[in-house]
Amino acid sequence: MYPKNRLDALTDGIFAVAMTLLVLDLHIPEETAVGADEASLLRALAALSPKLLPYLLSFYVLGVSWLSLIKARSRGETVGEPYAKWSLFYLLFVTLVPFSTVLMGRFTSHATATVLYAANIGAIALIAFVLMSLLPDPVRDAHWLDRRVSLLLLLASCLLTMALSFVVPGQALWAFALNVGGGLLVRLYRWLAPAG
């Protein structure tokens, strides 16, 4: 058995570092800064636009993933070996997000970059779903259902992004917009599901 609070501390640190590293690829080239006029600065900022969507998307996915982790509560203070090992595997993919984001930002119109990026995010969603099933004595409240639906929707949007990357690689990331409807799906499920 492993103390859950130690695993949570490691998770917090890795998420903080990964979210901070995301911004490192958003920089104005040094040659632009030397003697730059207003127009060249605006051109340099516009040149960052292909990198901005992957950055914002990655920050959002990591932020929401972290928030979901801290809301998924367990009545136990320890976790078993399977949960601990899957957590490390989960954190491995979290640490890869800055790399896959840089790759996506630099090669936006390449199917390979889009597939690797979506596969990275999809692995995080899939492993988070596994972790939920391994969490000892979880509190199965409204958040529990919301998280499960959101993870499945994120996984579906990753698969759709991968498929679209071979058809419209420069636009495939917009499939992640499906995740905005996650809360609506949960409310619809609660409305349609029988009480009890």
Rank of each mutant, 00 (worst) to 15 (best):
P138I: 12
D141P: 13
L48V: 15
A177N: 08
V94A: 08
A156P: 00
N5T: 15
M104G: 10
T95A: 13
E81H: 13
V34T: 06
V23I: 14
W191H: 11
L56G: 07
S49K: 12
R147H: 03
S58F: 02
H143S: 13
V79K: 01
Y2V: 08
L155I: 03
D141S: 12
Y117Q: 07
A84W: 10
S49G: 08
E30S: 15
L192P: 01
L173T: 06
T32V: 15
V34C: 01
G181E: 01
A16Q: 03
E77D: 15
P82K: 04
R190M: 03
L67I: 14
L134I: 07
E38H: 09
S100I: 10
D8T: 12
A195M: 11
V17N: 09
S65T: 04
S74W: 01
L184P: 02
F166M: 01
R187D: 09
A113L: 12
L26I: 15
A163N: 01
V94G: 02
L41F: 02
L24Q: 02
V180M: 03
E30I: 13
V34R: 07
L45M: 13
P29H: 02
V167A: 11
L155W: 06
L67H: 08
V167Y: 15
A84G: 05
G63N: 11
A142T: 10
A177M: 12
L164V: 03
V149K: 01
L69H: 14
Y90I: 06
L135R: 13
A33R: 04
L160A: 15
N5R: 14
K71A: 09
L185F: 05
A142K: 10
G183S: 07
E38G: 13
A177S: 14
F166G: 04
I70W: 07
L145C: 09
A72F: 09
P138D: 07
R190F: 05
L134W: 05
A18W: 01
A142V: 02
L185I: 04
A72D: 06
L67C: 09
G35I: 00
G35E: 00
T78D: 08
R43E: 11
H27K: 14
M104F: 12
R6K: 13
I28V: 15
G183K: 04
Q171P: 00
P3Q: 10
L69Y: 13
A72R: 11
I14T: 02
A163K: 03
K51L: 10
V149N: 01
W144R: 13
M162W: 05
A193K: 09
A36I: 01
V115R: 02
Y83Q: 05
Y83S: 05
P54Q: 13
L103G: 04
G183W: 04
P82M: 08
G122W: 00
E77N: 11
G182F: 05
S65Y: 01
L192A: 12
L62D: 06
L134C: 03
V115F: 04
Y60V: 08
L126A: 15
S165C: 00
N120C: 14
S150V: 03
S87L: 14
A156M: 12
T78K: 09
M1K: 10
L45R: 14
T112P: 01
L57H: 07
A84K: 05
L131F: 04
Y117M: 06
E81L: 12
L134Y: 05
D25A: 14
L92G: 11
V23N: 03
I124A: 00
